[in-house]
């Protein structure tokens, strides 16, 4: 490889993913040194790949001044954000993947719903439950499940579109990223119910090592409630929970809900079937993931997550 010019090596690097670039970088100083005064070829290659990305993607890159982050590392982050959005983690026993993990569907488990139905019928027989049409469904406090997106977003503008197959008490929004090990330890098999607005101690555990990346914002979880359309957000450190009306607020009982997270401006906007409703929340900063939350669903619900159209709020 010594006979190859730097240009040729950079062209070879342009076809590689970051794991392969890293392995090449580990072979010798010419390819791998991350010294800032004399970038190695793989570092230069990663830098060039970032520079050649579309502007909105370049803005996603989490540059952190004064840290030892390498260009290969930053390019790795860009590739993760460039991947299609999916639900990488699900918490709460009432939710499951319809298809394979990365086929981005989530639905309430039929088995769990049957249990809920049996409980409701048992209560009816004992006359401990009001005999109304709605009483068969599990109440909103009985179960809460969440699905968390794979993207960790800290810079730039991001958009996503959620498609619901049935109308439920369902919310879409953002949440601080969880520690990977915590999610693995508390997956669907061992957590019955998980509510990001109530499980305070869980939330602190789940996010402990990532809290240094929270920025200045005290908005740690923020959801658009499809009915009635309000904004529900929380500050985990003071355990305060707030429900706000917002300008442009509407409910969304069917179709698509789009969210646009602008981390340059610190805002979260809501779209209903492609129509912009307005900015639901401002004052956002630091790292967030996409979040879907279902509470007390009565029927099989499926939700699909897709990348949305990048429409800037800034006119």
């Amino acid at each position: 490889m010594k006979t190859l010019t730097d240009d040729a090596v950079l062209h070879i690097a342009s076809f590689m993913d970051t794991a392969d670039m890293l392995n090449v970088a580990l072979t010798c100083r010419r390819f791998g040194s991350a010294a800032t005064d004399d970038l190695s070829l793989m570092e230069r290659g990663a830098h060039q790949l970032i520079e050649s990305a579309p502007t909105h993607e370049k803005n996603w890159v989490p540059y952190k001044k004064g840290t030892s982050t390498t260009w290969i590392g930053l390019y790795h982050e860009l590739l993760k954000l460039r991947a299609p959005p999916s639900f990488s983690s699900i918490l709460g026993s009432g939710i499951n993947y319809v298809n394979k993990k990365y086929h981005v569907y989530a639905s309430l488990r039929e088995q769990y719903q049957q249990q809920q139905l049996q409980q409701a019928k048992w209560l009816l027989r004992r006359r401990q439950y009001p005999l109304t049409k709605h009483s068969i469904a599990p109440s909103s406090s009985t179960v809460s499940c969440v699905a968390i997106g794979n993207h960790i977003m800290s810079h730039g503008v991001h958009s996503v579109k959620f498609t619901m197959t049935r109308v439920e008490k369902i919310s879409f929004g953002i949440i601080r990223p969880f520690d990977e090990y915590w999610v693995n330890m508390n997956d669907v098999s061992c957590k019955d119910s998980f509510n990001p607005f109530e499980s305070w101690s869980d939330m602190i555990d789940a996010t402990s090592s990532r809290r240094k990346n929270w920025g200045n914002s005290n908005v740690h979880c923020c959801l658009y409630e499809t009915y009635p359309g309000s904004c529900q957000w929380t500050d985990w450190e003071t355990t305060s929970q707030t429900i706000d009306d917002w300008c442009g607020m509407e409910h969304a009982l069917e179709g698509d809900v789009g969210l646009l997270l602008d981390l340059d401006e610190g805002t979260l906007s809501v779209y209903k079937n492609g129509r912009r409703l307005g900015i639901m929340k401002d004052g956002l900063s630091g790292e967030y993931c996409w979040l879907m939350s279902i509470q007390g669903a009565s029927n099989s619900t499926a939700v699909q997550i897709k990348r949305g159209y990048l429409v800037s709020n800034r006119v």
Binding site: R29, A34, T70, I72
Partner: peptide, 12 residues
């Protein structure tokens, strides 16, 4: 040199 390279690229 190997230790330095791995430290530089610890993220992966």
């Amino acid at each position: 040199e190997e230790e330095t390279a791995r430290r530089d690229h610890r993220w992966i």
